[in-house]
Every structure is written in structure tokens, then in C-alpha cells.
Amino acid sequence: MNCEKIAELLPDYLQAGLSVDQKKIVEGHLESCVECREVAGLWKKLALIPDEQPSAEGRVRFEAMLQAYQTGRGTEGMPRRNGREHASIWNVFQWLRSPVGAMAWSIVLVVLGTYIGMQLGNTKSNSQQDLAAMHTELTNMRQMVALSMLQQQSASQRLEGVTWTRREEQLDPQVLSALMHTLRYDPSVDVRLAALDALSRHAGQPQVKKTVVDALQEQQSPLVQVALIDQLVEWRDAEAAPRLEKLRETPNLNPTVRQRADWAISKLN
């Protein structure tokens, strides 16, 4: 067998993934071929590069970060997720049973019924317009679903609501406003973080950037504060630098947040 054929087997040979017969074929070739033998030998020799141990400082930093996170969670008193009860499909099912959900479901049925009716009636001339209208209806419906879910009691349902908003390129002003409200005032860290992620796609809207900057001072959770700082650096929002300066002067600010703010200021200036 030549090198080209062996090349197909060699990667599996190196990871010990060959059958006994294939292994024998490869080893037979390696005995006669210097180049392939060198490749196999080099693979083994890579083990000579020893692993390194990370410094103890890494563990200290991690523990500080974890503590900061726990502190944030401890103060929020949010409804916790509870096993399978809060699985996402179940959440949607529960929501569909609510009055708002029932209304949205009805709209979907009406839209679908209209579409099927038009198809059966063979109204070809208007089919493009009909499709566009149906698409708009569906978009509106999805945004309504998101809006409704953002107002639910359960944090996992609100999280689901934030996920719904990600399905749209353009958000209705009302939904955008609800997302910004969620970022600032939702009692759950997880929901606030998800809202920030969702809002990061809408940086073109001036009020979104303003909300993120304003949230810097309001948030108590270090994890959210760090996420906000990262977002501002991602946006390269130079106007945020003075607000970050102000944040780092806050008494009793978490050291990880202060360190992150320093890093962000150096990036933005």
C-alpha cells in the first residue's frame, strides 16, 4: 500500500481508532516508509511537550468571580427554575393556555385559515401580497408572544420571552422598550443577561446604548455589571468612558468589576 492510501488510515492509527487488520496494514507500511514512520513517531513525541500547571492566582480569581456571582444571585430573590417543570416546551404550553396565548393562537389559526382558503380559491394574482401579509401577521404575533412572555411571573418564562425576541431582525418599539425594561429591572440575573444579549443586536437604536450605559450604575450583580462593561467595549462606545470612571469610584464595588472597568476605560480611551 502506498503513502496516499496510508494517509487515509494514519490519522485513525494515531488516535488508535483502527481495527486489528487495518493496524497491521499501517504498521507494515511504517516499517518500509521513512516519512510516514517519522510522522507517526512525531505524533508520539508530541507527548514530550509537558503539560503545565496554571498558577494559584487563577483559582483565586475564579473564586472571586464565583463569589461575586453568588452575591448577585443572593440579593435578587428571583423565582428559581425547578427541574422539568420549567422545561421550555412546557413553558410555551402553559403560556398558550393563558388568555394572551389563546388570543395569539387564534390569530395564527385565522392567518393560516385565510392562507389555506386563498390557496384553495386559486387567487394566484394576489398570492405574493397574501404571503407578505401573512408574514407580517406572523411577525406581529411572534412579537406579541415575546411581549406577553416578558411579563410572566416565572423567570424561565421571561427567559423564553427574551429568546422569542431574537427571532426578529427588527423589533416593535413596544417590544424593544420591554426588553430594555427587563434589562434594568428584571429580578433575575439570568433574564437580565439574556436581555442584554438580545439588545446587543439592536445597537443601532440610540436608546438601547443609553439604557445599557444607564444600567451600569443601577445594577447590583457583578456578573451583569461585567457583561454590561464588555458590551460597551464591544460597541466601542467612547461616551461610556466617563460613566465607567464614575462606576469605578463607587464605594464597595466588587474588585472584579473595578478591574474590568479599568480594562474597559483603557480600551475606550
Binding site: 496554571p54 498558577s55 480569581r61 475564579f62 468571580m65 456571582y69 444579549d197 456578573l223
Partner: peptide, 17 residues
């Protein structure tokens, strides 16, 4: 490398959902 490892665990917390 130390910094990036910290960042990975921070991202796990942030994106665990």
C-alpha cells in the same frame, strides 16, 4: 492563557442557558 481561562468560566456563567 490565564486570562482566557477566566473568561471561559465567566462565559459559561453568562451563557449557561
Amino acid at each position: 492563557s490565564e486570562d482566557l481561562v477566566q473568561e471561559v468560566f465567566l462565559r459559561i456563567l453568562r451563557h449557561r442557558q
